[in-house]
Design a protein around this nucleic acid. Structure first.
Length: 542
RNA sequence: GGCCCGUUGGUGAAAUGGUUAACACAUCGCCCUCUCAAGGCGACAUUCAUGGGUUCAAAUCCCAUACGGGUCACCA
């Protein structure tokens, strides 16, 4: 029996050969230096903030080198399958402006010439590559049961040996064709292992674009390449897919660093050029005294949907991630205020090799600044969109009083130094709710100097809607002495015992009566928007 | 436990052997202002995890130690 026939029995029904597949995947015709990279999630429908970071970085590199960013779905583990998972991922990423040049575009569809991009549809390809290995005696069937494997592991732990199927523990490494065939005829189950050519005493050096030179012992573990269900493992798929899809840069989370010796070995065995690896450090979080990777299970901020629910602008999240990805970004932004974060050129050597602590304060600050630069109408639209999903009551009001709401949001906006008091779309309501009669429900504490007399005098005899700001303020000053307030703050500070307060206090009386708050944006603007009759109403209820 | 990586202020960090260790967030003062949000000004690491070494010179190079992280599946 030839090796080829043997391989046919081990992996029957494979349509094409490795050579045929290589023929089908042509080299890409791209400009010099173009980066071809990918994002390769499982279809769980969940995008982790760390995944957002690495896909964002990958997206940037592809774009700025006129390369390609592709989406590949790694769906070979049934346990990770979630209905509509792929669509959810695509949608989430799209909301952060992360789009793909090729690959999966929906549950079933894909575009591009290097597909299929869904691994479950590539079974034949992996098997063809596995057969190539079997024919060359570089892979073999392994008949060990899970129990047997477990025993070996325990034994290794006991004698403090390295864990894994290697050397003498690789029981079927040198199985003959005849022995294997006999077992197969007996109906024994098997998987396919790679026959590692590595020696643990030798060193292998891998260059990482972010971490620099990494040195490891060679891999000598016979890893599984084809599982019991006939599907490939991650390691094997990485080799086959990234080679065939002509991926130049593998940008992924740093949990893969330790698999590097295996991956590099696979590429070397096939004589393929290794891709450039770039391992992104995880985002960390403080948990009591210790620091750990942000966890999907424990930390709500790990899900990108969290930011959506919080009403934090997607751009703010991206800007924050950019500051983590390349720390010189903030300086660049300071010097390029008119440009978008998308115009910044990211570089590998500026990516930190240690994991950053996730800093919510910083994110909020970025969000605040970002929102302060928005046009009132944009803010209105975003807030409306947010409220439509998370705050129906507020949504109704915003929709009903559109122009009015935009004017309210425009107070001290679109000026040289805009207000920075709105942290997110979700906090808009609490900043402006008093501007809506439906929501105006003041609960203030009355202070000694609060005077209804002053208020009534003011609305009946002083306030004039047509006054400009200076006139408006001068009139309040003029009115002050009549009610025991000092017109000038300095005057009051010099002799506080002579007054009930200063003009600032007089303003506070008006402010509290009209808004129910001690602190608000510019009073003049607020009064103007409210209009005289509503001011009067509110004063009467004071 | 093995293997790998990392360690500059509360946080993100700059510095790539050469004077007082950038900048930003947070915090705290003061100023300005009708209050707030801003804005302005200032404070905040005598020291770069610790200990040794190399050097005229070290946060930067070397070695140990400590601490932190990742990984050791027929999961990705």
């Amino acid at each position: 029996m030839t090796k080829k026939e043997y391989a046919d029995i081990l992996l029957p029904g494979v349509e094409h050969t490795k050579e045929e597949y290589e023929e089908m995947y042509k080299d890409r015709n791209l400009p010099e230096g173009a980066i071809v990279t990918r994002f390769a999630p499982s279809p769980t429908g969940f995008v982790h903030i760390g995944g957002l970071l690495s896909s964002f970085i990958a997206r940037k590199f592809a774009k700025q080198t006129n390369g390609v960013m592709l989406l590949r779905i790694e769906d070979t583990d049934q346990k990770r399958l979630v209905e509509n998972g792929v669509s959810k991922i695509i949608e989430d990423l799209k909301s952060f402006d992360i789009t793909f040049d090729e690959g999966a575009t929906g549950e079933e569809d894909y575009s591009g010439n290097y597909g299929p991009y869904v691994q479950s549809q590539r079974k034949d390809i992996y098997q063809a590559f596995a057969k190539y290995l079997i024919e060359r005696d570089l892979a073999y069937p392994c008949f060990m049961s899970e129990e047997e494997l477990e025993e070996i592991r325990k034994g290794q732990e006991e004698i403090k040996a390295r864990i894994g199927v290697y050397g003498k523990y690789a029981k079927y490494r040198d199985i003959t064709m005849e022995e294997a065939l006999e077992k197969i005829n007996n109906g024994e189950k098997y998987i396919i292992r790679f026959k590692s050519p590595g020696n643990f005493d030798n060193k292998v050096v891998v260059e990482d674009a972010i971490r620099g030179k990494l040195e490891f012992p060679e891999n000598d573990i016979d890893i599984v390449i084809i599982k019991g269900d006939g599907l490939q493992t991650y390691h094997f798929a990485h080799l086959v897919d990234d080679h065939l899809m002509k991926v130049t840069h593998v940008i992924r989370g740093d949990e893969w660093v330790s698999s590097l010796p295996t991956h590099v070995q696979l590429f070397d065995t096939f004589g393929y050029n290794r891709p450039t690896y770039a391992h992104i450090s995880p985002l960390m979080k403080k948990d009591g005294e210790t620091v750990r990777k942000i966890s999907k299970r424990k930390d709500p901020e790990s899900a990108v949907s969290f930011y959506h629910e919080q009403g934090i602008p997607t751009d703010a999240v991206m800007i924050y991630l950019m500051t983590i990805a390349n720390s010189n970004f903030e300086e660049w932004q300071e010097n390029n205020k008119d440009k978008s974060y998308l115009d910044f050129e990211i570089s590998f050597d500026k990516i930190s090799s240690s994991g950053a602590l996730f800093d919510m304060d910083k994110l909020i600050n970025i969000s605040k600044n970002y929102i302060s630069t928005m046009k009132a109408e944009d803010l209105y639209n975003k807030t409306l969109e947010y409220a439509s999903e998370f705050d129906k009551e507020f949504y109704e009001l915003l929709a009903k009083y559109k122009d009015y709401s935009i004017s309210v949001l425009n107070i001290e906006r679109e000026v040289e130094r805009p207000r920075k008091d709105i942290e997110s779309y979700s906090t808009v309501r609490r900043e402006i709710d008093y501007m809506y009669d439906e929501l105006f429900n003041p609960t203030y504490e009355k202070k000694d100097f609060y005077s209804k007399e002053l208020l009534e005098y003011y609305i009946d005899n002083v306030y004039d809607e047509s006054d400009d700001k200076q006139t408006w303020f001068n009139k309040i000053k003029e009115m002050c002495p009549k009610f025991g307030f000092a017109s000038e703050t300095k005057e009051y500070k010099a002799n506080p015992e002579n007054y009930k307060g200063s003009v600032a206090h007089a303003c506070e009386v008006i402010r509290v009566a009209v808004t129910g708050r001690v602190q608000t944006p510019d009073l003049y603007e607020i009064l103007k928007l409210l209009g005289k009759s509503r001011i009067k109403e509110r004063i009467e209820k004071f």
